[in-house]
Amino acid sequence: MSDLDDIRDILGFEPYRGAPIDWEAASQALGARIPSDFRELINATGAGKIGYDTLLLQPFAINTNYDQIRRHHEWIRDLEIIWEEEKDFDPEDQTKPLIFNEPDIRPILWGASGLGFNLYWVARNDTDPSTWQIAVEPARGGQWEFHPGTATNLLLRLLRGEAASLYLRSLCTAEQHFFTPDM
């Protein structure tokens, strides 16, 4: 069974019946290829919410709360402003993870939460997107978390309680094991 099949078994979501997603246009809008596991996940679920709070974003979603492209550009703009303002701070007071100072590496948003965290790929130019790690940003301060593996693999490990995360730990509880599609 694939990670997507296991996620489907845990969350019990119905197949997505919305309009097909233009993944090529989405990749162009984000400036990078979108990992295939995420394309498969969103093709299966559409935009929606895991449990009470974790949002899966979809490129060009009609509901702007779930529009990956719009939210990505907003958050990246906000991060750039914050990181620019922090340049003169002592290094221990800066919130920008050092990895994003490396050339050709940047965050690309794919999930979010009202609890104050965002899920990103750590995108590396000219590398296979399936090799990107996942970053979790605590939007209200705190240390970023970094996780190996794909988006679907991380979600599955979180749902099973197999991945340690300060910000996403509630996903392992059975009461969070449902999916609400964005309608």
Rank of each mutant, 00 (worst) to 15 (best):
D53I: 00
I42K: 07
Q28A: 10
G46C: 00
N65Q: 15
E40V: 00
Q58R: 14
P15G: 12
E24V: 12
N63W: 10
E14P: 00
Y52G: 05
A32E: 12
Q28H: 11
Y52W: 11
L11W: 15
A25E: 09
L55G: 02
L56E: 07
R8A: 14
S36G: 05
R8D: 03
R17F: 04
E14L: 06
L57A: 09
A29C: 01
P35S: 11
G12H: 11
E14T: 09
P35G: 08
E40S: 07
I50S: 02
T64M: 15
K49W: 12
F60V: 08
L11A: 11
G31N: 05
F60A: 05
L56N: 03
S36T: 10
N65A: 14
A29E: 13
F38L: 15
D53F: 11
A25N: 05
G31E: 09
S27L: 00
T64Q: 15
A25T: 03
R17E: 13
A61E: 15
K49M: 10
W23E: 02
F60D: 08
A47P: 01
D53T: 09
D22V: 05
T54C: 03
L41A: 04
I21E: 11
R39G: 00
S27M: 04
D53M: 05
R17I: 05
L56G: 02
A47W: 13
E40N: 09
G48L: 07
G46Y: 04
Q58T: 04
A26V: 01
D53W: 14
D9K: 13
F13C: 08
E40D: 12
L55S: 11
I42A: 06
N63G: 03
Y16I: 03
F38Y: 15
K49F: 07
G31K: 09
I34G: 00
A44M: 02
I10L: 10
R39P: 00
I62L: 06
I34K: 09
P15F: 15
G48M: 07
R8W: 06
A47Y: 10
G46T: 01
I21P: 06
S27Y: 06
L56D: 03
Y16D: 07
E24D: 13
A61R: 07
A44F: 00
G48Y: 13
A61T: 04
S27C: 02
I21H: 14
N65M: 13
G48A: 07
T45K: 10
F60N: 00
A61G: 01
E40K: 07
E24G: 04
R39F: 02
I34W: 11
L55P: 00
P59H: 12
Y52L: 07
I42R: 13
F60R: 10
D37W: 09
F13D: 11
A26Y: 06
Q28Y: 10
L56S: 05
D37A: 08
E14W: 03
D9A: 09
Y52F: 08
Q28W: 13
I62E: 13
A47N: 03
Q58I: 03
F38H: 14
N65C: 08
L56W: 15
R33W: 12
L30Q: 05
D53L: 01
L30D: 07
A26N: 01
L57F: 06
I21M: 10
R17L: 02
N65I: 12
I50H: 13
L55H: 14
